[in-house]
Each structure stands twice: as structure tokens, then as C-alpha cells.
Write a protein that binds this DNA or RNA. Structure first.
Length: 217
DNA sequence: CACCAGGCAAGTA
DNA sequence: TACTTGCATGGT
């Protein structure tokens, strides 16, 4: 027997999945590309991130060694389309330093670390907050943590499952305490929430035709 | 023209 | 602890 909250979340998931189909996130080919994208997409449209990642790929910069070698200012120029490029160049370098120091530059070390330790470690990096850390843990390391973003906040309290002042961890617990620990479920659910936000939360008329319309309680 | 995007850290009181 | 502000390009 599952909690009623769990039932509601499951229903929400099914509605979104039926409407949009599976999203197959993360849109990136390698672990490092996913990690890079997680930094670059902070408060930024994914389209802009793609351009920045395209620049990095074009110049073969998507490796730990290359990102370690390039200067922060040069890196900033490459990732300019992603916005906040000076800040993000520093954050990306911080993440690379972390990989070098903690795993001797070998991402296999990172991927083998236990979930909690990995998450805590990522959170010590300046520029990596809860959402970025969890995105890396879920989408790069394939561990069952639920990623929360602004759309999750917006949609959940719009539908009466959370109040305005719920914290990141309040919402994360809501999902993780009431759903099975399933990597693919968490993967698709978060991706579908973001998809819903992008497609239906921008303007009123759209919102009314959202697959979740009429779910307020 | 205004507004916002798959956040985060630093500053203020 | 609880707000506020800076960071910045590119699309609607």
C-alpha cells in the first residue's frame, strides 16, 4: 500500500508521460558533457547551453585535461552564449579542480563513489548548489536522487502538493519519501516536469490547456 | 520595449 | 535567519 501522496505523484507522472512521451534525458553524450551542461544551464535556456557546448566540442575542449589547461578567461569566451560566462567559467574550473584533486582527474573514480559521498563532495564545489549536484548525481552517475527546480516548485504548489515556502529539501523529500527509488522514474519525472514548465507555464492561455489542468485541489 | 531561462553565492540587516 | 542583488546571452 502506498501513501496517498505517492498515488498523486504517480498519477501526475502518468499524465505527463502519456502527454509528452519519454524525454530520454540528459541531452548529452558523455559524463563530462552532462556535468558541464549542469553548470551552464543554471538559470539559463538550454538552447543557449547547446551553443556553448557546441563551441567546446568544436575545439576539443570537453575533456578534464583540456578544461584544466585552458585559462578561465579563454574558457569564458567559449561559453559566452550560455550567459553569466565569467561566473560559469570559474564554476566549471572549480568542478574540474575537484575532479582532479579528489579523483586524480579520472571520472571513473567519481562514478564509483557512493551516492551520499558524491553528493556531499559536489556540494563543496563553489558554484555547485543542490540542483546542479543532484543533476550530476542522477543524470551522470545514475543514482536515484530527485532533482528539484523552479518549475517543480511552481507546479507543485499550484496543484496543492506544497506550499510557497517549501525548501528544496522539502520538495525532494516529498518525491523521495513517496515514490520507489527508481533511477529511470526520477530521470523521466524531472525531465517531464521541466518539459511541462517550458511548454505550458509561460502564459495564461497555455496554462489552461496543460495536461495537469484541473488538478488543483 | 519588457521579460525570462533546467541557480548560486555574496552582501545586508 | 531571511531577504536582496549581481551575473548576461538570446529568444518571445
Amino acid at each position: 500500500m502506498q501513501s496517498s501522496t505517492g498515488q498523486r505523484l504517480k498519477e501526475m507522472f502518468d499524465l505527463l508521460l502519456n502527454h509528452f512521451g519519454p524525454q530520454y534525458w540528459w541531452p548529452g553524450e558523455t559524463v563530462l558533457e552532462i556535468m558541464t551542461g549542469a553548470i551552464l544551464t543554471q538559470n539559463t535556456n538550454w538552447k543557449n547551453v547547446e551553443k556553448a557546448i557546441g563551441n567546446l566540442k568544436k575545439e576539443n575542449l570537453l575533456s578534464v585535461e583540456a578544461l584544466r589547461a585552458i585559462s578561465r578567461t579563454s574558457l569564458a569566451e567559449k561559453i559566452r552564449p550560455a550567459g553569466y560566462f565569467n561566473v560559469k567559467a570559474g564554476r566549471l574550473k572549480n568542478l574540474i579542480d575537484f575532479i582532479v584533486k579528489r579523483y586524480k582527474g579520472d571520472l571513473k573514480g567519481l562514478l564509483n563513489e557512493e551516492t551520499v559521498g558524491l553528493r556531499e563532495g559536489l556540494l563543496t564545489v563553489k558554484g555547485v548548489g543542490p540542483e546542479t549536484a543532484d543533476s550530476i548525481v542522477l543524470y551522470a552517475a545514475q543514482r536515484p536522487v530527485f532533482v528539484i527546480d523552479t518549475y517543480t516548485h511552481r507546479i507543485l504548489n499550484q496543484h496543492g502538493l506544497a506550499d510557497d515556502q517549501a525548501t528544496y529539501y522539502d520538495l525532494q523529500e516529498l518525491f523521495m519519501d513517496n515514490l520507489p527509488e527508481d533511477v529511470m522514474l526520477f530521470n523521466e519525472f524531472h525531465a517531464l516536469i521541466v518539459k511541462t514548465g517550458k511548454e505550458y507555464c509561460r502564459r495564461k492561455p497555455l496554462c489552461e490547456s496543460c495536461p495537469l489542468a484541473g488538478w488543483e485541489r
